[in-house]
């Protein structure tokens, strides 16, 4: 049963195409991660789902509600924690939560009970009566989580929930998100941190240039790639000639694919092996030419490999490529209401 269904969403800001026919289904009760570099369309997708933005075309169904036709019904059932934390510096955390409760029309009595509950749970009691202007990034993030959860939403949407947070706050946020899932709340988060999505999500979608290019459980995505990743060094710091020679040797071995010389790491060789036997065959082949192995590490494919496979570049490269092209000012303006 899908709690969110996004169909063929298209959205452009001026000449920049942010979403390019994005289709995404989120199962009820899952902790779903949207992974992608900056500019892939994650924030735009979440803003459309949260009724802050209208797509140029496409369909948004949340919990059986046509969000574009009946946004208010959708707003009642979802909590949104935005990327840029917006608090009123003059209000105390408690006053902000009270305001939040009032605009969600909680009866005053319930509102206070619920606030106390969340203050306790998110460990905010020592500072909740101080003004928001004095809070650290981690405190603000917790306050934001609390205000997103105040009305007991069916779905919690978080945009880059741990950007700029210290490690302690980050793990606190992670812990809460896991608890929420076990309580049956669907959690949809975006991130450009691989570890975050990998550690938290039971389902992920990889976004690139405004569309979903892969989706499923992290395990499934990695298994689909098949083969283990191997890094092989014949010396700690090798040379071009030597590594090229080894590369030619390795290419002859059966069950070895995608042999690449990694210049950045002392001309080590990165390759993919299809089965355990391939490693033995590599040793034999190299022994024949009296090439000795300095080190060999073997690992399961990571999400970064999934991303690399799907787009032909690493997540890091994609970030760098996009960083120069984005018109942040224009986007801020477009997103201002």
């Amino acid at each position: 049963m899908h709690v969110i269904e996004l169909h063929e969403l298209v959205k452009s800001y001026g000449t920049v195409q942010a979403l390019n026919g994005l289709t995404l289904c989120v199962p009820e009760g899952s902790l779903y991660g949207l992974l992608g570099p900056n500019g892939a369309g994650k924030t735009t997708t979440l803003r459309i789902l949260c009724t802050l933005l209208a797509p140029d075309s496409g369909e948004v169904i949340f919990s059986g509600i046509d969000v574009l036709k009946d946004p208010r019904a959708a707003r009642r059932k979802l909590g949104y924690v935005a990327q840029e934390v917006a608090v009123d510096k003059i209000l105390t955390g408690r006053e902000l939560l009270q305001l939040q409760g009032d605009i969600y029309h909680l009866p005053v009595k319930d509102r206070e009970i619920r606030i106390n509950e969340l203050v306790e749970r998110l460990e905010m009691s020592s500072w909740i009566n101080r003004r928001c202007g004095t809070y650290s990034g981690g405190m603000r993030r917790r306050l934001d989580l609390a205000s997103g959860l105040l009305h007991k939403p069916k779905l919690l949407v978080l945009d880059e929930p741990t950007v700029g947070l210290d490690i302690e706050s980050r793990s606190a946020v992670w812990q809460i998100l896991k608890e929420l899932r076990s309580e049956g709340v669907t959690v949809l988060l975006s991130s450009h941190y691989l570890e975050e999505v990998e550690a938290l999500s039971d389902q992920i979608a990889i976004l690139d240039q405004g569309r979903v290019i892969a989706e499923g459980t992290p395990e499934k995505l990695k298994n689909e790639l098949g083969g283990d990743r191997v890094t092989l060094r014949v010396r700690e710091f090798s040379t071009t000639e030597e590594s090229e020679k080894v590369r030619r040797l390795l290419k002859k071995v059966e069950g070895v694919r995608q042999v690449v010389v990694n210049r950045a790491q002392g001309f080590s060789l990165n390759l993919v092996v299809d089965d355990e036997g391939a490693l033995t065959r590599i040793r034999e082949e190299l022994d024949k030419d009296e090439v000795y192995i300095f080190s060999l590490t073997q690992s399961k494919p990571s999400l970064d490999d999934v991303y690399l496979q799907a787009t032909g570049r690493t997540l890091m490269d994609a970030e760098l490529a996009v960083a120069g092209k984005r018109d942040v000012k224009l986007e801020t303006k477009q997103s201002m209401r």
């Binding site: 707003r75 917006a86 605009i103 029309h105 205000s147 209401r337």
Partner: peptide
Amino acid sequence: DREFGFLNRLLVAPLI
């Protein structure tokens, strides 16, 4: 409120 994003907090709420 618009510039700091506080308005968004109000706009995602189900105001009557």
